[in-house]
Design a protein around this nucleic acid. Sequence first.
DNA 1: TATTTATATAACAATTACGTTATGTAAAGA
DNA 2: TCTTTACATAACGTAATTGTTATATAAATA
Lengths: 108, 108
Amino acid sequence: MNELLDLAFAALADPTRRAILRRLAKGEANVGDIAENFPISQPAISRHLKVLEEAGLIETARVGQSRPRRLRPEGAEQAQRFLAEMASYWPDRFDRLEQFLDSEKDSK
Amino acid sequence: MNELLDLAFAALADPTRRAILRRLAKGEANVGDIAENFPISQPAISRHLKVLEEAGLIETARVGQSRPRRLRPEGAEQAQRFLAEMASYWPDRFDRLEQFLDSEKDSK
DNA sequence: TATTTATATAACAATTACGTTATGTAAAGA
DNA sequence: TCTTTACATAACGTAATTGTTATATAAATA
């Protein structure tokens, strides 16, 4: 139903993928550029890139035989909105605890 | 290396868990309250709650035999910061670039 | 055309994730 | 004390994730 949001959060849960995003914040990079700087194989990088792209967080161009990736920051907007809403909620702990205890008392 | 951020994003990737968070934004709820409104078993809910708590997104109180959960919005702050900075990145906006590149490092 | 280069895909193993049902535990109430 | 209530935990099946190595594909180059 909200699959893109699922995919975006799942993509962001992997530290290697977050590192790739930070790398792409420096500018476009192709697979080889990225793979050189990570301790995992090129196929593993290719798969991480696919995950990031399917989540809408990056996009791919085609220049000759290389496929430069770049950040697609708008892909994070929905996830950002979810977190902003959550963070805007602040439980007044004391009050809520009182409220809970009161409701327990009432139902006795 | 930033395991809490991994856990937070992974927790947020599941739609059932996001629904639980939205439920908790309306106020504290215990396991039974939540399980009633979801099409999965109580043990499954208990596990989702454990995942959310280990990610720092909710916390648990003890009142008699029930364990009311409540939102812990500050648990989402680091994730929110990562996304906000990524979303503020634009290929020609180098003023934001440095901030984004250092985001995980800084919030350690 | 044949070779090299850049990247993707396939096949596989190990681990983790998410659901189920069955059962354990601790507090509440008769 | 005995039962019920609220929740956690265990055991298990299945599917997804993440890495590996081997191989396929398509563009660049000799």
